[in-house]
Amino acid sequence: MNNKLIHWFKYASPQSFYPLAGKMIPWFWGLAAAFGVVGLWLSFFVAPTDAQQGEGYRIIFVHVPASWMSMFIYLVLAAWAGLGLALNTRLSGMMASALAPTGALMAFLALWTGAFWGKPMWGTWWVWDARITSELILFFLYLGFIALQAAIDDPRRADKAGAILALVGVVNVPIIYFSVKWWNTLHQGSSVSVGKSSMAVTMLWGMLFMALCFWMYSIAVALMRVRAIILEREAHTEWVKELNEVKS
């Protein structure tokens, strides 16, 4: 047990994590491509045409995984941030900063595909539905996190300040979600429901594979970004100056 702990802390230092991440990235890219090919094949060629929604429904194979990822990444980001505050490890803050742009991208993608889905289904680009509204606010939370970190010059302060914001945000996300839901039911503005009762099994498989593809993509991109952040912040250290890619 004790050995294992030390082993993990070894990889918590940027110096040893950098090459490890470098080795992992191609694998996650490969998995993302594989899951993506299977997922797209299932969702475009195998999954049946929906009785009510026609072919347009197929956008949910991107929309649903993207919105899942946008929420999940915020949780992971907050977890890294909390870890960084509690244990004062430098890598945690870097991971949090590396995840934020991907999370924002996912939230944006979910909103955009949601609008594309909404136009043929509801006849409008935007509906003040509880889920869409919460997703929009989640997008704002990501932007706030990125903007705060960008405004702070000292990376250690940026990490810590971002961590506090992420933790405050993660406490607020469920509150925001339920308040928006409450607001929506009170106003009864849009009584739309995504048809989840009559979903074919192949649709579920398609969605699952697409979700796995998004996972692998997010991990790969986050690792690439964290490697860039490590190089940037550790530029003054000896080990970075010794790296082949830096020397040449």
């Binding site: 932007l143 706030g144 705060l148 405004a151 300040a161 405050v168 925001i176 308040s179 928006v180 607001w183």
Partner: peptide
């Protein structure tokens, strides 16, 4: 919380509203 996080930062005022306004949503709704 937002005021403390943006203390002494450039563009603090605009940044502050970006951080704080989304968190004000529940208060506004209720």
């Amino acid at each position: 919380i937002g005021a403390a996080l943006t203390l002494g930062l450039r563009g603090g005022g605009v940044l502050l509203s970006l951080l704080v306004l989304p968190l004000y949503v529940p208060a506004l709704i209720f």
